[in-house]
Design a protein around this nucleic acid. Structure first.
Lengths: 160, 160
DNA sequence: TATTGTTATACTCTATAACTATA
DNA sequence: TATAGTTATAGAGTATAACAATA
């Protein structure tokens, strides 16, 4: 919890908010950190007219040519209906294309276009700078511990 | 990235999605872990008819009698307008009361009611169980490293 | 019958501008 | 003029049910 200044007329000794109950909770800290990351990433991606979700989808399509929408939704951990508008937007901007799969005409194979690849690579560079700035004083081992911990949390949550 | 099974007709050797580009990003892992925590906490709080935000507000009011709405919004890292509906809901359910401050008639001093305190304490017990379950195989040191790291991220994001 | 992508819908969270009443 | 709380509003993320086309 960040110390919060009380109104000027209040006692200076009590110029903070007691969050002892919440401070124990990983989710409390993670929410605050994630909000910061989310806001900073949004600002980073704004020049490319991308958001976290459209960026994530674009990267995964670029790195996995021919990916199906259902696979992508699964990988991004979102529901299929929510992916549709994301894919719509990327296709409308001609950053990706939907190609019908001849062997399964229900599915689409997703591919980046040349423009999509270029934009994606430019955005990737900006995102790495954003990441390095936010993690500036975290050494590699700390980052690794955090990531491993988050994987465990994810696993614990999904087995229950 | 969780391995994702490709369509049954696909090559089993390629039954996963390559996320090498995203795997480097703390925000990517944090989003996934936080989504799990958020969903699990929502389920935990559902019997009490609370959400993460209403629970957080209730706890902070209980632990800080007389708190002002502006202080609470600041502590919760949300905008004042967004707090209003949260306070409205808690007040309508008679879990808290708004009391006018005699020395500053613009402000409200927030207080929990008896019912609010009882519900809050019951919810706290459930939340601790939820937390222990999600962090089951994370030792104390790992938790501390993660929390310290998230604080640094929060600080880095807010100084820029 | 089951699956892929889709539409429609609803709820939540977040963010900003502008208002009121007090200070 | 500044601040506390409020209203209105808009954008974004998430979740579910139900549908058409295809397997």
């Amino acid at each position: 919890m960040k110390p919060v200044s009380k109104p000027r007329q209040a006692n200076p000794e009590t110029s903070w908010v007691d969050d002892a109950t919440l401070r124990q909770l990983m989710g409390y800290h993670m929410k605050r950190a994630f909000n910061v990351i989310q806001a900073d990433l949004a600002a980073t991606l704004k020049p490319f007219d991308l958001r976290m979700l459209t960026y994530t989808a674009l990267v995964l399509i670029k790195d996995n040519p021919g990916l199906r929408q259902s696979q992508l939704a699964d990988a991004m951990d979102i529901e299929r209906p929510n992916l549709v508008v994301i894919i719509d937007e990327l296709e409308r901007r001609e950053l990706i294309v939907r190609e019908r799969v001849s062997t399964d005409r229900r599915a689409y194979a997703l591919q980046v276009t040349m423009a999509g690849r270029q934009l994606c690579e430019q955005a990737e560079t900006a995102v790495l700078l954003h990441e390095n700035r936010l993690l500036e004083n975290l050494d590699e081992e700390t980052r690794a511990v955090m990531i491993a911990g988050m994987h465990l949390v994810e696993k614990n949550g999904k087995k229950g």
